[in-house]
């Protein structure tokens, strides 16, 4: 397995596991990781979490509003019809925290990378374009019964703490 894939895999596995366990949503991975441009058109709801340690990087979870609404509904047990609802966004943000936390734990145990997470942030809006300068991301498209999501993972050499 390439070094990049060794770092990416725990994130993707964590997405599938966390969606299944917390929201009862099966995630179907479509294809392999591919290199991304530094400009991304958002599906609608995007959550980002940064990590730093011996290396640093960024994990971005981007999803269609229909996925975000179903996810919040399944996790919280309440019906939501607006992805701008604070509870919906807070749920996705926390889920991103769990996903990245699991992945970073695995990487730290496996490679002693000393990674720690920044607090996640999340946004939604019309025609949102995300620019991720300096760190080139790898991405993989995913599908669910409720819509599409995409996972972006990026690493660059950091400073040891």
């Amino acid at each position: 397995m390439s070094q990049g894939l060794q770092l990416y895999k725990p994130f993707l596995n964590s997405v599938c596991d966390t969606f299944a366990m917390m929201a009862n949503i099966k995630v179907y991975i479509e294809g392999a990781f591919s290199s991304e441009t530094d400009e991304i058109t958002s599906y609608g709801v995007s959550s980002i979490i940064n990590y730093t340690g011996k290396i640093k990087g960024r994990f971005l979870l981007d999803m269609q509003p229909s996925v975000a609404l179903t996810l919040a509904q399944n996790v919280l047990g309440s019906y939501y019809n607006n992805e701008r609802d604070e509870m919906v966004l807070a749920t996705i943000s926390e889920m991103n925290n769990v996903i990245a936390g699991n992945a970073v734990s695995i990487l730290n145990n496996r490679y002693s990378l000393g990674l720690w997470l920044s607090p996640p942030y999340i946004f939604t809006g019309k025609d949102a374009v995300i620019v991720l300068p300096r760190i080139r991301s790898a991405s993989v498209g995913c599908n669910t019964l409720y819509g599409k999501l995409k996972v972006y993972i990026a690493f660059e050499r950091g400073t040891e703490k």
Binding site: S42, S46, I48, N50, Y51, T52, K56, R58, R84, L89, S118, Y121, I122, F123, T124, G125, K126, D127, A128, V129, I130, V131, L132, P133, R134, I135, E156
Partner: peptide, 13 residues
Amino acid sequence: APPTIVSGNEMFF
């Protein structure tokens, strides 16, 4: 961390 730049309308963060 490196910055993330977001451009769009009616943004909510």
